[in-house]
Design a protein around this nucleic acid. Structure first.
Length: 200
DNA sequence: GACAAGATTCGCT
DNA sequence: GCGAATCTTGTCG
């Protein structure tokens, strides 16, 4: 039996429930024969319909957001502040522009490679906490925009670990004050017991 | 064609 | 706690 999560998993309708479920899943990349993997500890849900924080809200379709209208199971990567690559997973079915931002994970494999990519010598939470840091540690950047999350594309997810429901905290999302009332939605989820969380 | 702003991070005060 | 770094994208003229 395969541990790899199939595209159908990402095509669930409820992006908020999916964001919670993704905490504890394992994200793996394999670039240039360097494998890095980590257990996801923090996520945020973004919904195309009725969520001002989403890049694709009000059915806005541009070159950047176009990928979010695809069926779930592909990567949405974009450059923020000209510096940071942010990694999202597109969810739901076609023409529903939902996505989950992966904000932090706990290294499980290839720690040395992560440290090299981050330019760090000692292990500390910021190796892979925070969406920009995580992408850098995993080697993800905008050239992976639109890639299916399959083993053949060198970026995929596996079953990971089960986390007690009570250990997953939901809080307001981060850095989206421009979204007015939607900025208060508790659509950020993180593992209470992990040190690899961007903000508590 | 120009310009403002951003789902962030880090270093300094 | 605050501000700079840095560049793509979207919007407007």
């Amino acid at each position: 039996m395969s541990q790899v999560l199939p595209a159908s998993y990402f095509q669930q309708k409820d992006v908020v429930a999916l964001a919670r479920d993704l905490v504890g899943k394992k994200l793996i990349t394999n670039f240039n024969h360097k494998i890095t993997a980590g257990i996801i500890t923090e996520t945020e849900a973004y919904r195309g319909w009725g969520d001002k924080a989403c890049h694709a809200h009000l059915n806005r379709k541009t070159k950047r957001t176009e990928i979010m209208y695809h069926p779930g199971g592909v990567a949405y990567v974009y450059l923020c502040y000209g510096i940071h690559h942010l990694f999202n997973i597109v969810t739901n079915t076609e023409n529903h522009a939902d996505a989950v931002l992966i904000r932090a994970l706990e290294p499980a494999q290839g720690l040395q490679t992560m440290l090299e990519r981050r330019g760090l010598s000692a292990v500390e939470p910021r190796v892979s906490s925070g969406p920009g840091n995580l992408s850098q540690a995993m080697g993800i950047n905008t050239q992976h925009y639109g890639k299916p999350l399959e083993k053949s594309e060198n970026i995929w997810l596996e079953k990971g670990i089960i986390i007690d429901y009570q250990n997953i905290i939901s809080r307001k999302r981060v850095g989206i004050s421009y979204a007015e009332e939607d900025a208060d939605l508790p659509w950020r989820f993180y593992n209470k017991q992990s040190n690899y969380v961007s903000i508590r």
